[in-house]
Amino acid sequence: MSTVNCPECEAPIEFAEGTEAGEIIVCPDCGVDLEVTSIEPAAVQLAPMEQEDWGE
C-alpha cells in the first residue's frame, strides 16, 4: 500500500486496505483529521473543520 506524510507532523502514513478517496483518516501520530484526496498516487490534506449544521 502507498504511504504518504502527514502534512501536520510529517509522520509516514500507510493507507489501510479499502481506503477510498474522500475518506477522512486520523494521523496515527498527531491525531489530526486528514482527507484522502487520492489513492494512486497517495495524497492527503488537512480535513476542513466540521461545521455543525445540516439541511432539511
Binding site: 477510498e20 474522500g22 475518506e23 477522512i24 483529521d33 482527507e35 480535513a47 476542513p48 466540521e50 461545521q51 449544521d53 445540516w54 439541511g55
Partner: peptide, 23 residues
Amino acid sequence: RKESVQSIENGKRKIIRDDYTGK
C-alpha cells in the same frame, strides 16, 4: 454554503463537496 460536509458511510467518515446545503 458549506464548502464540505462530513458524512458517516458504513463506518467510514467521508468528505462531501457538492452538497447544496446551508446554514
